[in-house]
Every structure is written in structure tokens, then in C-alpha cells.
């Protein structure tokens, strides 16, 4: 009885309510599985996701993605139901190579930020150049939003679409910061 109940009860800190200041949608993501992969060589793939893409890029799609954050560090996102599968695949894909694959599904919280002025909104707290040339779709990096560390991923799309990932205890701050930033850019 307990098992059934708690297997399903993942309590997300932000809920799922969307805010839409200045036409930018700020939407806490649903429960996803995430892993931190650390490995020194970039050959091959893990569960079909490539390792050899440049630092600060993301590959895959919205459902299954792998962001290369440093020379030997990747952040991977997959649907919650594929978590076990990913770990199994990794074990065989990376067999014999020193690596570390750590489940951080509960450490990370995702917030999707989408809309024509999303870059302007993020720049309220993110000091990076989010212009088309400097941070095109497919970019991904660890950076700052106000006083919190985030991972910022720009997804493909006709209008700017971003995923902001932060640690769980910072999620309230990051979420509130984004909503405030939406009011700060005004309706103009």
C-alpha cells in the first residue's frame, strides 16, 4: 500500500502553474530524470546521445537531451520513465571506461522560459550575451541568474525557448526571480 503511494508521489517544489509576464511563458517543468555524466574521453554515445559535441552545446530533443557543460562533464535529461533504461544503456555503452554517472533527478529543477522576449527576461539576471550569434539554439552552459547558479539551455524553435535548470533549494528563488524579471521588462 505504502509502496504504491510513495512510488508515485514525487513532490515538485514549484508545482506546474504557468506565469506569463510580458508574453513570456515561465513554466516549471514536469518531473524528469537527470544524470551527471563525467568521463574523460568523448568517443561514442550514451543511450544514443552523443558525447563528442562541443562544450556549451546541447544535443537531442526536448525529451531526451545531453548538454556538454565542460570538457568532461555532461548533464543528461530523459523522461522519468526512461531513467532505469538510461543507466542500463550507460553501463554497457561505457563499459570498461572510467566514468561516473550520478542520478540528480531530484537535485535539479527545470523551468521552461519561452517567448519573443525570453532572452531579455533572462538577461535581468544572466550576464551572458544571449544574442543569436553568441547563444543560438543548441547552446547550453552553466552560468548565473541573479545570485543563483543555473544551467541555461536554448532549445530549437521559431521563437526563443530556454530551459533553466537549478538546484532544488534555489528553485523558489529562481522561479520568483524570473517572474519578477518578466515584470521588469514591462509590456513594451
Amino acid at each position: 500500500m505504502l509502496e504504491v503511494r510513495y512510488r508515485t508521489a514525487r513532490t515538485l517544489p514549484l508545482g506546474r502553474v504557468e506565469a506569463r509576464p510580458a508574453g513570456v511563458a515561465i513554466r516549471p517543468a514536469e518531473a524528469e530524470a537527470r544524470f551527471v555524466l563525467r568521463i574523460r574521453s568523448t568517443e561514442g554515445e550514451i543511450a544514443g546521445l552523443p558525447l563528442n559535441r562541443p562544450i556549451n552545446t546541447v544535443s537531442g530533443d526536448d525529451r531526451r537531451w545531453i548538454a556538454r557543460l565542460g570538457p568532461d562533464e555532461w548533464l543528461i535529461g530523459v523522461p522519468e520513465g526512461e531513467a532505469d533504461l538510461l543507466q542500463t544503456s550507460a553501463a554497457s555503452d561505457l563499459a570498461g571506461r572510467a566514468h561516473s554517472l550520478v542520478d540528480v533527478s531530484n537535485r535539479n529543477v527545470g523551468i521552461d522560459v519561452e517567448g519573443a522576449r525570453a532572452d531579455e527576461l533572462l538577461n535581468a539576471g544572466c550576464p551572458l550575451d544571449l544574442g543569436e550569434a553568441a547563444f543560438p539554439a543548441g547552446s547550453a552552459t552553466r552560468t548565473l541568474l541573479g545570485k543563483a547558479e543555473i544551467v541555461l539551455i536554448r532549445r530549437a524553435g521559431a521563437q526563443p525557448r530556454y530551459r533553466v535548470e537549478c538546484w532544488r533549494s534555489f528553485a523558489t528563488y529562481v522561479h520568483d526571480f524570473l517572474k519578477e524579471a518578466g515584470l521588469g521588462i514591462g509590456e513594451g
Partner: peptide
């Protein structure tokens, strides 16, 4: 700027 009240500093809380 926005760094006032709840946004002055992140307030980290546990589940």
C-alpha cells in the same frame, strides 16, 4: 534592482 525581500538572497529550504 530586484534584489529585495524574497529576492535579496536565495532562501534555501528543504522539502
Amino acid at each position: 534592482g530586484p534584489a529585495r525581500h524574497a529576492l535579496f538572497d536565495p532562501i534555501r529550504t528543504t522539502p
